[in-house]
Nucleic acid binder design. Structure first.
Length: 424
RNA sequence: GUGAGCGUAGCUCAGCUGGCUAGAGCGCCAGAUUGUGGCUCUGGAGGUCAUGGGUUCGAGCCCCAUCGUUCACCCCA
């Protein structure tokens, strides 16, 4: 017996309806905001992630599903969506289109990690990217889009954490200041922090070790070091968010784990999630396209974990479901299976969701099955009634039944099930 | 990669200090009703006790390893 590989999961039909519902809301919302869907491959050249995500990141250092194919190329299952979308933007010269170019994606990402609550090796993200605008309006548009998404799903209690991590102009000065601050007392910090002091001092800020937090209590905030451009940008992002009525929390120690971020970074935090409490996150990545070998093109976007989102929705209220419940079951006595089959076809052509029992068992078993499908109506084809050009229409909810003329059954069911179905 | 808990029927679980052919509830299939679901009753199918090794007269139970799973660390979605 096989089971699905570690950290992966099957999504069975009942659960898939929740996914369809959730993804449908994402797609509608993106259409309303003018984002077009992009579908990129599930694997890319490994080098793309080295360059796009950054060699010093945990993703690249230890979490990638990398393999060599039969011709010796090194390929990697995508661990995130932004670098592939950036690659596609360049490859297809989307900078020749009217700017900005606004894209969204929904799909699987892969990271080799130990699974735990809210973390799988294959997980699902919904993300958006805006290329070609440096305006703070773009930053705020993606944040409000994410917020609208949570609202449309009925999820409350999502905290927006916001920060700016500067740009290549001003960040180096801040990194130096950080190193100066930490260096004298680095002995008291955890091994991780000690290792990072020279490589990536920003990461010392969000270390969760009790000891490290205490020792860096009075670390200088980045705000004093931002250049005038970054400062103005950050200021406007905050004003626009406030004007949109979105509550957010400035978190001077919010740094994100991917190298491409500049200026604005943000995270959506949900308290119901336990240790893995980030529902989504994102920020601005003005250097990414250049890092990938293209012209300087500013960008901003977010990604959110749909698996985690579903966990939250199940905890507070019920997630919606795609409408797929069967409406009619067709049951036929032995010898009338073909007639039942053809009637089911007619009903489906009229737009109804119809199941047919394939026979091979008694009427009792068929009825039992029909009851379990949840369909409100059953049509029974019995030899006596069929001879008189009639069928039995049974109400599976209330329990009664009546005879209906054969040629009347399709319109009759359409009428009882209401609405549009019959008008196709 | 590190640490801890847990693996008995499709599901939820019981199984004493190691001792007969390993149990329950739910679910599934069939019958009671030769043409009618839900309720009830009766019967049936379904288990390499995660896998491999060890200790023992004897292992579902004890020991070791492996795999899986859950949670946490690291980090992120």
């Amino acid at each position: 017996m096989f089971s699905s590989p570690r950290g992966t999961a099957d999504i069975l039909p009942e659960e898939a309806r929740e996914w369809q519902w959730m993804e449908g809301i994402a797609r509608d919302l993106c259409a309303r905001y003018g984002y077009g869907e992009i579908r990129t491959p599930l694997f890319e050249h490994t080098e793309l992630f080295h360059r796009g995500v950054g060699n010093a990141t945990d993703i690249v250092e230890k979490e990638m599903y990398t393999f060599v194919d039969r011709s010796g190329r090194s390929l990697t299952l995508r661990p995130e969506g932004t670098a592939p979308v950036g690659r596609a933007y360049l490859e297809h010269h989307l900078n020749a289109l009217a700017q900005p170019v606004k894209l969204y994606y929904v799909g699987s990402m892969f990271r080799y990690e130990r699974p735990q609550a809210g973390r799988m090796r294959e997980f699902h993200q919904f993300g958006v990217e805006v290329f070609g605008s440096a305006s703070p309006l773009a930053d705020v548009e993606v944040i409000t889009l994410a917020h609208s998404f949570y609202e449309a799903l009925g999820s409350r209690d999502t905290l927006i954490a916001l920060n700016s991590i500067g740009c290549p102009q001003c960040r180096p000065r801040y990194l130096e200041a950080l190193q100066e601050y930490y260096r004298p007392k680095i002995g008291g910090f955890c091994a991780n922090c000690q290792r990072r002091l020279e490589r990536n001092p920003l990461r010392l800020l969000d270390c969760k070790e009790e000891q490290c937090r205490r020792l860096s209590q009075d670390v200088p905030p980045i705000y004093d070091y931002l250049c005038s451009g970054c400062r103005a940008h950050f200021q406007q992002v905050q004003e626009l968010l406030a004007a949109s009525g979105l509550a957010f929390q400035l978190q001077p120690r919010l740094v994100r784990g991917l190298d491409y971020y500049t200026r604005t970074v943000f995270e959506f935090i949900h308290s119901a999630l336990g240790a893995q409490d980030a529902l989504g996150g994102g920020g601005r990545y003005d250097g990414l396209i250049e890092d990938l070998g293209g012209p300087p093109v500013p960008g901003v976007g977010f990604a959110m974990g749909l698996d985690r989102l579903l966990v939250v929705l199940r905890q507070s209220g019920r997630p919606g479901k795609a409408e797929t419940d069967p409406q009619v079951c067709v049951l036929a006595f032995s010898g009338l299976e073909k007639e039942g089959f053809l009637l089911a076809r007619q009903l489906r052509a009229a737009g109804l969701r119809v199941l047919q029992d394939f026979g091979e068992r008694g009427l009792k078993a068929q009825m039992k099955w029909a009851g379990r499908t949840g369909a409100p109506w059953a049509v029974l084809l019995g030899p006596d009634e069929w001879q008189q050009q009639k069928v039995i229409l049974r109400d599976l909810t209330a329990g009664g039944q009546e005879e209906v003329a054969r040629e009347q059954i399709v319109p009759e069911l359409c009428r009882r099930l209401g609405s549009a179905a019959g008008e196709r």
